[in-house]
Amino acid sequence: MVELKNVSVTYSSGVDALNNVSLKINDGDFAFVVGSSGAGKSTMIKLLLKEINATSGVVTVNGYNLNKMKRRQIPEFRRTLGFVFQDFRLIPSMTVYENIAFVLRVIDAPKKYIRKRVPYVISLVGLQAKSNSYPDELSGGEKQRVAIARALVNDPKLIIADEPTGNIDPELSYEIVELLKGINDCGTTILMVTHEHDLVRHFGGRIINITDGEIVFDEVIGGINEA
């Protein structure tokens, strides 16, 4: 669950990136966050990952009050969520398999579990054949599928995706969203930032529009495919 209560963020440069934002996303929801460039979408994501702190207001994610959280609690908090970024953030010196297994090593999962779990999530994103490839050898869509598998591997309650389709071919964007939808169907909450209106119109669902640091629209709309 994600909850923002009267949250504002002012960067040290003086920019007011978020202005009195309140928002609640329930467990199992799928929500699109849309808005033009510079609207404050990434700022909200950074807030939810506790990369930055709110200047005022209360941020609660997966039961953690991020305002009151101590530094040493950050690791255990972050283990409850997965992330997908526009720029993939894969480690170039590691194979697909290693990039994913890495997450489980970090949380000190048993070796046996790693050997079972990693191939499983790779198969979920359909990349069995690329298991031993390096990120450089993959297309943008494939890279993002690896990133999604990585976000999935520790079975998080919430996956946060900041423009996951931003660097891949438009026709492949649909596949990525389908994948996230599938994950959502299994119970994982998903918050996806995008500025591709076509995607949003196609899939529908809950749409949160941020403009100039404020939520100007927060409704559920019907998608084309559902209509």
Partner: peptide
């Protein structure tokens, strides 16, 4: 640096 950044995101402890 990339690894370290990602490690932080996925919840690696400082000692790790």
């Amino acid at each position: 640096r990339e690894e370290i950044q990602i490690m932080k995101y996925v919840g690696a402890t400082n000692s790790f």
